[in-house]
Amino acid sequence: MYNFDFEQPGSVEDAVAALKEEDALALSGGQTLIPSMKQRLNAPSKLVSLTGIEALKGVCQNGDTLSVGAATTHATVAADGGAYAALAALAGGIGDPAVRNRGTLGGSLANNDPAACYPSAVLASGATVVTNAREIAADDFFDGMFATALDEGEIITSVNFPIPEKASYQKFEQPASRFALTGVFVAKYADGVRVAVTGASEEGVMRWAEAEAALSADFSPEAVDGLTVAADGLISDLHGTPEYRANLIKVLTKRAVAAA
């Protein structure tokens, strides 16, 4: 990979200041960034490690909200996120144990890989992404493949997840990468059901409005029987056609409802 300067600030303020340098990049768990740097797809002048900032770490429950620090590892969310069991289960299924000990929530969201797991939880939960500068609603955060509402140098500090009545994440793994070939997160709240789909759309994580409406009326697997998912705009790759992914969205949604 290209060489760079390494910096590990101890506070969000210092990190923000360090990221003002041109071509500086934030480094969280690095589980996606480092492999892409090995391929020389990134050429940062400086990497600003966020994992030394204690304020960005940890899981805590405030009433109906689970707040997760951005630099909290997947392993920690899996272990400590029991108040939101579906979220903890999702975190415990990302990558593999060694990846989960390094990868973080904030890193995953900022990268917004179209096949990542976490974006579906954030979107289905209607979570709030908190940054050093502002709060961003989940519906406004994701902006297509590998794109988010984050400004240059803006750092996610935490994410506030409203804890649903019922929820489940169903991940169908791409057999090589073990990312989601398609994953569906279903969350039932008092005011309705939200369904978010990852891995399937060329636009990245998305909501499935028809299923949300049907499940808000009747939270049962059969409620989505009559729905069809259009294959248009779904990803076509070695591992699945758009039609196959459309099928998975429906099948996994039903399974998520059954498991919730």
Binding site: Q8, G30, Q31, S49, V99, N101
Partner: peptide, 15 residues
């Protein structure tokens, strides 16, 4: 104490 992939971590991160 935690298992990590040492090829996906910088030496400086292990300081």
């Amino acid at each position: 104490g935690n298992a990590v992939k040492s090829c996906t971590m910088f030496a400086h991160e292990a300081a």
